[in-house]
C-alpha cells in the first residue's frame, strides 16, 4: 500500500472558503476541479475522492469513496492503470497552463495569513464519557481537528511583561474570547456556527510563571470561559433546528469550560516551545450539521478540547475554521 500511495501526489482541499470556491469559482484551480468533477457521473456533491491527471482528466473517483477506504484503493488502482496508457500530452498541462498554475500558487502563498512567527495551536475536540447515558452512537469515538492562530505580538501576551518566577498575568480578554468564540465550540461530529461576541459570558485566563531556566519561562494557565445563546426556535440553516419531537422550542446552546494548562516560552527565540491547554467543558444545544439532532443529543454533556503546539507541515497550516471572523487585516 505504501508503494501504491507513493505513485500519487496527495492533496486535500475545502470546497468553499473565503475568496475561493472550487464549485463555482472562475480561477484556474476552480475551473480545473469543475472540469474533473464534470467527468464524474455521480451525485452533484463536490465532496469526494478523485484521481486525475495534472491537466484535469479524471482517471477515477466518486463521492462515496469519502466513507469507503476500499473504494479509495479501487480508484487509485484504476487511476494508475489509465495513467499508464496516456502520453505526456494527454496527461500534462501545457507550458503556458503550468506557468499560470505556478503563478496562481505564488499569489495564494503570498496572501496567506498563516502566522509563521506567531503561535499556531492544534485544537482537538472530542466527547467525554457520560456516566448517566452511555453513548452508543456510531460516531461516539469521533473527534475533530482545528487550528487556532495568534500573531507574534499576541503570543507574547500570554505571559507577563517581566517574566520572573511567581509573576502573575491576566491574558488579554480579546485573546481568550477568540478561544471561547471560535475554538470552544461543539464541532465534535460536524460543523456549527461560531459564537457571537455577545454570547461570551466569561473569558478569563491567567498565567503564572512557575519557573525560569535561562531563556526558558515555564507558565501555568488557569481559566474559565462560558458562552451561552438562547434562540426563539426560528430556523436558520445550519444553526437552529426546525421544531419537532424532542427538540426544545426555546433553543439554547453554549459551552462552559474550565481551563488548565502549561507552556514554555523561549525568550531568546521569542516563541513558545511547548503549549498545552485543556478545556474541560459542558456543552449544550446542537443542530443537524453538527450531528446532535439525529440523536436529540442536546446535552448538557461533557466535551474536552485540547490545544497544543502545531507543527509546520502544509497540513498544519490550514486556516482555522472561523478564521474569517478573526478580523485580521
Amino acid at each position: 500500500m505504501q508503494k501504491l500511495s507513493a505513485m500519487f501526489v496527495p492533496a486535500a482541499d475545502q470546497i468553499e472558503r473565503p475568496g475561493k470556491s472550487l464549485e463555482v469559482g472562475t480561477s484556474f484551480e476552480s475551473r480545473l476541479v469543475q472540469k474533473i468533477k464534470k467527468q464524474c457521473n455521480d451525485l452533484a456533491s463536490f465532496q469526494g475522492v478523485f484521481v486525475a491527471t495534472p491537466n484535469g482528466l479524471l482517471l477515477a473517483g466518486s463521492h462515496e469513496a469519502v466513507h469507503d477506504p476500499r473504494k479509495v484503493e479501487q480508484h487509485m488502482r484504476e487511476g494508475l492503470e489509465k495513467w499508464a496508457t496516456l502520453s505526456a500530452d494527454e496527461r500534462l498541462l501545457s507550458k503556458a497552463e503550468f506557468a499560470r498554475a505556478v503563478s496562481d500558487l505564488e499569489v495564494v502563498e503570498a496572501q496567506s495569513q498563516y502566522p509563521k512567527d506567531g503561535l499556531v495551536l492544534s485544537a482537538i475536540c472530542r466527547d467525554l464519557p457520560r456516566s448517566s447515558r452511555p453513548d452508543t452512537s456510531p460516531s461516539r469515538n469521533a473527534y475533530n481537528q482545528d487550528y487556532a492562530w495568534f500573531r507574534k505580538n499576541e503570543s507574547r501576551e500570554f505571559l507577563p511583561a517581566q517574566p520572573v518566577k511567581g509573576a502573575k498575568h491576566k491574558v488579554p480578554r480579546e485573546l481568550v474570547e477568540r478561544l471561547a468564540r471560535f475554538h470552544f465550540v461543539d464541532l465534535v461530529r460536524g460543523h456549527t456556527t461560531s459564537f457571537p461576541q455577545k454570547a461570551v459570558e466569561r473569558a478569563e485566563l491567567s498565567a503564572e510563571v512557575i519557573d525560569v531556566q535561562g531563556d526558558l519561562v515555564s507558565l501555568r494557565f488557569r481559566g474559565r470561559t462560558r458562552t451561552s445563546e438562547v434562540h426563539d426556535g426560528v430556523h436558520v440553516e445550519g444553526k437552529w433546528n426546525r421544531p419537532g419531537t424532542g427538540i426544545p422550542e426555546l433553543q439554547k446552546r453554549g459551552v462552559d469550560a474550565t481551563l488548565e494548562g502549561q507552556a514554555v516560552y523561549d525568550l531568546q527565540a521569542d516563541r513558545f516551545v511547548s503549549f498545552d491547554l485543556v478545556a474541560l467543558s459542558s456543552r449544550w444545544g446542537g443542530n443537524a450539521y453538527n450531528g446532535r439532532l439525529n440523536d436529540r443529543d442536546f446535552g448538557p454533556a461533557p466535551m474536552g478540547i485540547v490545544l497544543s503546539l502545531a507543527g509546520k507541515t502544509a497540513a498544519e497550516q490550514v486556516p482555522p475554521l472561523y478564521f474569517r471572523y478573526y478580523g485580521w487585516k
Binding site: M7, F8, A11, A12, I15, E16, Q47, V49, P54, V66
Partner: peptide, 9 residues
C-alpha cells in the same frame, strides 16, 4: 504523477 485529492465542505 497523477494527483489523488480529497474534497470536503
Amino acid at each position: 504523477k497523477p494527483i489523488m485529492f480529497v474534497l470536503m465542505n
